[in-house]
Structure formats: structure tokens, C-alpha cells
Amino acid sequence: MTARLRRYTPFATSGLQSLLQYRSMFAMTAMTAAAGAAVTVFLWRAVYAGTPGRGPGGFTVEDITTYLLVAQILQVLHTNRVDDEVAAEVYRGDVAVMLVRPVSYPVMRFFACLPVVGANAVLVGLPVLGLFALLVPLTAPRPADLLLFTVSTALSVLLAFCVNLLTGMTGFLTTNTWGVRMVKQSVVAFFAGQLVPLALMPGPLAALAKVLPFRGMVDGPLTLLLGRYDGWTDAAGVLVQQAAWAAGLSLLCAALWRAALGRLEVLGG
């Protein structure tokens, strides 16, 4: 098992290497994230401005600020470039070249994106968090919640990988993956609760968001971080739902990948 995994470490290191060549990339990703966070944070802070204590959805001003800021940072962790790179490789036909290597393409992609996630967390996530901590008051989480949040974040990264891989694989179907990616980005951001917490959505919309897998990408981890759950069973429920979706989507990815390869062979690459 370890020997098999070791085969994939070069993909992880080379992924990091190619990333580090663009040092400006991190500064810009950070700026993008900060800008994105600022729009939602200030929009919702304006809503809570007139309400002291707990406002709509049971959030305080600090809570909602923390929620939206961390939501944006989670989104940065989920931007692993898998969707555009897979789409581009499918489009250019480079996927055929990948097939001759003795490794599984989706697994290789997963390892290649891990360092991207790590680098984004350290070089983008932390500075943006620090910047906002200076500007606006935030809620400090309890240590236990922080632990739960960490586990939940790891699962959310896996979820995001699957979603992005599926998005990238639409390259087998259409050349305009740009449009598909834009739809994915908007829909995921909305139903994950990145722009509006699920607690502030009207009943039917919230119900829909709760059964979709995207909820586990932002709203799930943040529910745990802010301690917005009823006892341990409730917290475990969030994690179990995430894990179940992660497993389900992984299986879906594997099945669709096989199907796509069959199609590729028929088309002759």
C-alpha cells in the first residue's frame, strides 16, 4: 500500500514546485480572497449593524463576520485548480498521454492538488484571516470545536476535489468548460452557504441545500467551528453526512472516469 502510494509523491512535489514558480500567484489569490470576503462580510455586517446581541439566524455580528470570512478561506482551500486542469487536458487530448503511465489519473490528480491546498492555506488563508482580524472583531472558537472543524475541513477538501474533478470531466462532453465552471462556482458557492448561511435561507431553500453535497463544503465545517450544534450526536451527524457524500462522490468519480475512458478509446483519443 505504502509502496503504491509512494508512486504518487512525485506528483505532489512537482505540483508544489510548479506552483512556487509563480510567487505572485499567492499574493493575487490572497487579494482575490480578501476582496471576495469583503463583499459578503460588509454586506451582511450592514444587515446586523442595527441589531445588538443575537440577530437573524441566531448570529451575532462577530459570528456572521467569522462565518463569512472563514467561508471565503474554505473556498480558497477548495480552489485546487483540478477543474480547469483536467478540462484543459481532456480538451487538448493530453489525457491520452496520461493513460500510458502506470498510475491512476484521478488519484494522481488528487495528490497533485494536495500541496496546492496546503500552500493556499498557509500563504493565502492565514494572511487573509490576519488582515480581517485587524479590521473587524471575530468570534474565537472553543478548542473542541476547532478540532471538529479541522476534521470537517479535511473532508470538505475531499468533497471539493470530487466536485472539481467531475466539473473537469465535462470536458469530455463540451468544449466550453469555462461556462460549466462558472455555473459550478456560482451554484456551489450558493448552496454551500458561502454567500448566505443556510440558517438565513427560507425553509424550502434551506431544506434543498441541506440534502445537497455542497453543504459539507462550507456550512458543515462552520456549523462545527461556531458551536452551532446540539450535543455530540448532532456534531457527529454533520461529519457523517460529509463523509458519506465524500465516499459517494468518490465512487461516482471512479465510475464516470471509467465510462469516459471507454468513450475516449472509442473516439481514438
Binding site: N176, M182, M201
Partner: peptide, 20 residues
């Protein structure tokens, strides 16, 4: 596809404003 994607994006933006 491009126009559809764009409509979805603006639609969601409008929805966020509505929810606010």
C-alpha cells in the same frame, strides 16, 4: 452554455440580495 452560465450567476447574485 456561456449565456446560461451567466444567467445562473446573476440569478444567484440577485437571490443573495433578496435573502439579505
Amino acid at each position: 452554455l456561456g449565456a446560461g452560465a451567466f444567467l445562473v450567476r446573476v440569478g444567484i447574485q440577485t437571490a443573495v440580495v433578496g435573502l439579505v
